[in-house]
Nucleic acid binder design. Structure first.
Lengths: 146, 146
DNA sequence: CTAAATTAAATTGAGCACAACTTAATTATA
DNA sequence: TATAATTAAGTTGTGCTCAATTTAATTTAG
């Protein structure tokens, strides 16, 4: 039996399992990230720095889908821990460049086991992971177009 | 060329697109929910009340994957708006029962168009939505087992 | 060249999300 | 049946997340 209210059920809105699964997976990172003294947001920022070495707040924000309101305190915290250095661009004083330090590079060695450890909890086979991955990026790409 | 650090790339961790897509989709709800004077968390709580009419904080928390630390202020806010009433269970004074009001029921009429409006932004076809749905619940079910 | 528009970060304030702890009620056990 | 253990909510404190605003630097147009 269906009604005009069916769309208003939790189990009929894709957005709810997305939201719940996201939080539950992030929770699984916590014990491993606690050992590194990183929050999840600090961790994904460091993942970008391990690849890019140096970038502006705006560039980092585009990669993480976060704005300066979120990133400014996260970057200050990472700088306080000694993993990055923040400095104004000489070419354009509006731009803040964040650059990974030697200490930040070294942290990569300790972080390298984190993804495998968490992957063990999720228990999708490689085909399913690929499917999920493609669907999520399809959603992200469309929403990112605006 | 692959390295032992490949797992530490954003694009190789399922958790990142999950986190980013979740936030981006929720952002699409905002304009519609603003019109109802509801936040997203208040909205998913109301979705449960539209189905269940009355339940305890614990039961609601199990459905939403949220604890009393999050739900207590959300429920107080919904009560302040007149959509629910909170009262202690007579059978067990520890339990707080939250019950939808007439006004809360009426809100459903205004909310009924929200899911369709947002679904339009996501742009997955019905097969893809079903796939995504199944994969997300698979992740949730496994993580929920502990 | 200068005023207006744009841009990049930072700031502010509201509302989660969650861990850790507290309080009060109920249940289990010695 | 005392008391110990457990349970349900609430409280507290930290850290996002985001919208809206502010500040300062740069670019664009008149």
């Amino acid at each position: 039996m269906s009604s005009k209210y069916d769309g208003l059920k939790l189990e009929n809105q894709i957005c709810f399992p997305l939201y719940a699964a996201s939080r539950e997976v992030i929770k699984r990172y916590r014990p491993y990230l606690d050992a590194l003294q990183l929050t999840y947001t600090q961790y994904i920022a460091m993942m970008v720095f391990w690849q890019e070495k140096s970038l502006s707040v705006k560039e980092l924000g585009e990669k993480l889908f976060l704005d300066s309101g979120t990133l400014t305190p996260v970057l200050k915290s990472l700088e306080a821990k000694g993993y990055i250095i923040r400095s104004r661009s000489k070419a354009d004083e509006r731009v803040l460049e964040a650059k990974i330090t030697e200490k930040g590079e070294n942290l990569k060695e300790q972080a390298v086991t984190v993804p495998q450890s968490v992957a063990g909890c999720v228990k999708l086979d490689s085909t399913e992971v690929k499917q999920l991955y493609n669907l999520l990026y399809k959603v992200l790409d469309v929403l990112n177009e605006d």
